[in-house]
């Protein structure tokens, strides 16, 4: 099988990897780049644990993406979500509101929620449900996850507001 050298850009880091056409983005991220935060579940698009964020910011199922199609296209995985030691608001909310049990689904759910909030910082109930429907948790169910996402939305809105916390000044 002929391999082709591609440049994978994961969380801003560049990796030169020879890949065969039949290698998925998931396989390469986990087994060659050795970032194992992205999980391998159903490998057929139905569980969302392999979710990463593509170059357009949208949630991508890495188990159904060919690595060869991601040459030079930036990808964000769960390892790239925190800023150094400072967790992303979605990560903080998952911790604080107990949206985690075994944790197998957590990277996929956090990437899904982050992709949603990057595109729409103030999603309504329907938009949250629509996004989360593609990433499953078989331990906690989606209730705590939804609580965490809603709290993350509030925290991010508060962070984005001006220092005095009063929004636009009257005048």
């Amino acid at each position: 099988m002929t391999r082709q050298l591609i440049t994978l850009i994961v969380n801003g880091d560049r990796y030169q990897v020879p890949v065969a056409p039949c290698e998925t983005l998931l396989d390469v991220i986990r087994d060659r780049v050795a970032l194992t935060g992205t999980k391998r579940g159903c490998t057929s698009g139905a569980c969302g644990v392999c979710t990463v964020q593509g170059d357009d910011g949208r949630a991508v199922l890495s188990c159904l993406a060919l690595a060869i199609e991601w040459d030079n296209r930036p990808v964000t995985t769960i390892e790239g979500v925190a800023g150094g030691d400072e967790l992303h608001p979605v990560q903080k909310a998952f911790l604080e509101y107990g949206a985690v049990q075994c944790g197998a689904c957590t990277p996929g759910l956090i990437m899904t929620a982050k992709a949603l909030l990057d595109e729409n910082p103030d999603p309504d109930e329907e938009a949250i449900n629509e996004a989360l429907a593609g990433a499953l948790c078989r331990c906690t169910g989606h209730i705590k996850v939804k609580i965490a996402v809603r709290e993350a939305i509030k925290a991010m809105a508060a962070d984005a507001a001006p220092e005095d916390g009063h929004g636009i000044q009257e005048g």
Binding site: G45, R58, A59, V60, A65, T112, E130, A133, G134
Partner: peptide
């Protein structure tokens, strides 16, 4: 169109 699979699927 919105009924196809999940949003993840529809993104691709």
């Amino acid at each position: 169109i919105r009924a196809v699979g999940s949003q993840h699927v529809r993104n691709m």
